[in-house]
Design a protein around this nucleic acid. Structure first.
Length: 210
DNA sequence: GAGCTGATTGGCT
DNA sequence: GCCAATCAGCTCC
């Protein structure tokens, strides 16, 4: 049975949905794999989000679209893939950061000119492997090239920690809104030093060391 | 192996 | 002109 993504995207708080995406299979034109890492972005209140203070621009307007809308944007020479969640007009989203390749692996490796874990262990790499571009932006999931299947695999354990590339954003810098499948080798790398910087001021000590 | 740095594109102020 | 939710390669332990 197909998932009603518009409904799903409003069925729980964004961090919960971000965790639910772990173990979900993402397939685009025969290439894809299991989602092993996501980050939650909490809209207008979140200093690290594009939608902070409801600042709407041409680039990020997909965030205000219906739940289940695909939000792709460009960072340097790469594209990053997000899924818009929560009610229309609430600009929260989930960044999909890493995949464990399972389908069309050879083709993805060819696009990336890399093999193994390096095929999709990062948001820019993932989009390159799947050949996602700005042409995929602002489309309802159901009408997009993306094919998602929930719960294809179930993580043995989910780890959480600070998001990547979020510096000097107060409490949002250390908020544990990044989720990954604990121990999975396809999760994107984060340098030890960067991790320590993030951990400064971390009070809850819930960090797992993957 | 870990950390640092340059590359390079597009959007916003 | 500045900044950005990155990546890969190079240096130095």
């Amino acid at each position: 049975m197909e998932t009603d993504w518009q409904q799903w995207a409003q069925s729980a708080p964004t961090p919960v949905l971000a965790q639910a995406l772990l173990g979900t299979e993402l397939v685009v034109a025969g290439c894809g794999g299991l989602i092993v890492e996501t980050e939650a972005y909490l809209g207008a209140q979140d200093r690290a989000a594009h939608a902070y203070q409801n600042h709407q621009t041409r680039r990020n307007r997909a965030l205000w679209g219906p739940p289940g809308t695909v939000y792709v944007y460009q960072m340097r020479q790469y594209c990053l893939l997000n899924l818009n969640v929560q009610a229309q007009g609430v600009p929260e989203c989930i960044l999909i950061r890493a995949l464990e390749p399972t389908r069309g692996v050879a083709q993805m490796a060819a696009r990336r000119k890399q093999t193994g874990v390096a095929i999709a262990n990062g948001p820019g790499k993932l989009c390159q492997a799947l050949a996602l571009t700005l042409a995929d932006n602002e489309k309802p999931l159901a009408a997009s090239r993306l094919n998602l299947t929930l719960n294809v695999a179930r993580p043995a354990a989910i780890a959480s920690g600070p998001r990547v590339g979020v510096l000097n954003k107060g409490v949002w810098t250390t908020a544990g809104l990044r989720f990954w499948v604990a121990g999975n080798p396809y999760v994107s790398g984060i340098s030890r030093r960067a991790a320590e910087l993030h951990q400064k001021g971390w009070q809850h000590g819930t960090d797992e060391h993957a």
